[in-house]
Design a protein around this nucleic acid. Structure first.
Lengths: 202, 202
DNA sequence: CGTGACTTTGACCAGTTGGTCAAATCAGGA
DNA sequence: TCCTGATTTGACCAACTGGTCAAAGTCACG
């Protein structure tokens, strides 16, 4: 563990390689299923060397989760209260869907954590996450009150967007087993657009 | 391991207790996260005693998954080609939602397995599951062709039902963290009905 | 109540895993 | 080049975990 002066070139490179490898392994095996040795070999480093950069396996996991929550909520943050309601929501849906396509490992890391009761990020859910959702829900509520989108339970509306979009990353195996050759991400955007347009058009 | 004559009273009781305990532990911790000792103590038996009834930890897990897939698909099997299309679909949605409320452990067991790539039930997904879905999709397609429900991508329609309903079991912690006091299952059925009614009414 | 099959368990074992440590090696500024 | 701090690693541990086994206890039925 080097002193807390600015990180060297080597530190940056190795820390990044470790997190990249850890993301692969944790997202595929879950926290307990992952072993430090696996991560080390995936990162091309020795196990003691990993533990030189991160004090423990849990620290790697935490570093990933911390970085993740922010990225994960970005699409929702972009929802603009001053935009055209339906287009804003459809935009949010498509951004979220793209994240499932482009960052499936992150989605699964998150899913693993939540399914098992979110032991490590429970606080963040009740604080940051809840605060952001509450804020955006009040925007949705205003739009509904003004008759600019159809009235529906705003929290369930957001849950539905989360679950529908993340399903394609988290349950990827199942989706592909059922669909066969067809690429889910070719047809999903159209389906989503239809669904939310019909649901929300006043 | 007793002979293969009919199971005794004790065998029945203990096997059931073990599976019940295993469901608790596996659904909360995942396969690798669960330990045989945990399951044993939860079942009120000793570890060697568990391994007298099941040859290995994996055998317990398999026994659960096997029993699960059938139960899990029952609501979809009930979808009746001769019924009134919209009502049939809404009925399916509500049955699936009830399963999430009444059997959250089973839902999470399944989720854990799929998120990690379904290593143990991949075959069942491509066979039984795909066959059933294909069959029901052709029913949906007929309904759409006849103009009895609005045309949408039928596979995505089914995925959407799965993801929306299971979300309330699998991501329960997150849902409750955001909702606070409100019981999700009080308001979800209404939301779902609205959603699918608007999506599917021709 | 005796007997053979069924059940239970304490003690144990080998493999795995997270983590440590001292010694060796390397990088780069003076 | 030399020196100091940064980096790397082989060898090790202790704890945990899945699984074994022989011996002891219990059950049901003739």
């Amino acid at each position: 563990m080097p002193a807390d002066r600015p990180p060297t070139r080597i530190q940056k490179k190795n820390r990044a390689a470790i997190l990249e490898a850890a993301l692969n392994v944790f997202s595929a095996q879950g926290f307990r299923g992952a072993t430090v040795d696996q991560i080390a070999s995936e990162a091309g480093l020795s196990k003691p060397n990993l533990l030189y950069y991160f004090p423990s396996k849990e620290a790697m996991h935490n570093a990933l989760l911390e970085r993740l929550l922010d990225t994960w909520l970005d699409p929702l943050r972009e929802l603009d209260a001053d935009g055209e309601p339906l287009e804003e929501l459809l935009g949010y849906v498509q951004r979220k869907l793209q994240m499932s396509r482009d960052y499936p490992r992150e989605s699964r890391l998150f899913a693993n954590e939540i399914v098992q009761g979110a032991p490590r990020i429970h606080a963040a859910l009740s604080n940051e996450l809840k605060a952001l959702v509450d804020e955006k829900v009040s925007v949705l509520q205003d739009w509904m009150d003004q008759g600019r989108i159809a009235p529906v339970h705003p929290y369930h509306l957001i849950f539905s967007i989360w679950s529908l979009t993340q399903h394609y990353a988290d349950f990827d195996v199942q989706v592909r087993a059922v669909l066969g050759e067809e690429d889910p991400f070719a047809t999903a955007p159209g389906f989503m657009e239809t669904l939310y347009r019909r649901l929300l058009t006043p």
